[in-house]
């Protein structure tokens, strides 16, 4: 067994390097969530406010159940594993930096506690038209846009307006919610199918951006 010795040395070296990292990861729940979140700030921003440069949405203040669900979908491939999903394909490997369901929960809990920041309005839409179209959406997402956990519908009012349009487009074209087993995705996909065009998407996003936080 010739290679045994060098590999032991390598393992000892790697081990000491790895323990250096592991020592940084606290075991106390909230502190660990905060450290895990450091893997997200590159794109989602230091306080989860999102980044248009990275096309990464604001996630600050999204409910824990929804962040957990989406990160898990990215991990398993229910979201972000479609050839035309440029942004989703970037997020998918990042979800795999979380190695256990417990870590997914911890980082999601941390995200949910960050202060909501949906950024400035970035697109022009007809708010009045958006408001009347939003009547359909309110059944699940709430008239005030705060979402409905029982229906697995996330809050919308704290999302960036550009991200809302991007997601409606993805649902409509099947770039998101392409997996038949993804029931919550399928629900929303059907709804997005009823939004006629890009202009209607912009109107909806413009209206949602006016909902009080």
């Amino acid at each position: 067994m010739v290679p045994a010795r060098p590999s032991l040395v390598m393992m000892a070296l790697l081990g000491s390097a790895a323990s250096g990292c592991a020592a940084e990861l606290p075991t106390e729940a909230s502190a660990r969530g905060e450290v895990l979140f450091k893997n997200c700030v590159q794109c989602h921003g230091d306080s989860g406010e999102g980044s248009t440069l990275m096309n990464a949405p604001a996630i600050a203040g999204l409910p824990q159940w929804y962040v957990e669900a989406q990160v898990t979908h990215f991990q398993t491939g229910w979201r972000g594993a479609h050839a035309d999903d440029v942004e989703g394909l970037k997020m998918r490997p990042m979800s795999r930096t979380l190695k256990s369901a417990a870590d997914v929960s911890l980082v999601s809990a941390h995200v949910s506690k960050l202060a909501v920041n949906r950024g400035e309005a970035s697109l022009v839409g007809d708010v009045a038209k958006g408001q009347s179209a939003y009547a359909t959406c309110s059944v699940c997402h709430g008239a005030d846009g705060t979402g409905n956990e029982a229906m697995k519908a996330p809050p919308l009012r704290q999302l960036n307006d550009w991200y809302i349009v991007a997601q409606l487009r993805k649902f409509k074209t099947g770039v998101r919610a392409y997996e038949p087993a993804d029931a919550s995705g399928a629900t929303m996909k059907a709804m997005a199918g009823a939004v006629p065009d890009e202009a209607a998407m912009r109107d909806l996003a413009a209206y949602i951006h006016t909902l009080p936080l």
Binding site: G77, A81, H82, K99, S100, A101
Partner: peptide
Amino acid sequence: THYLAYKF
């Protein structure tokens, strides 16, 4: 299959 599914 259409994507590599990761198991956790």
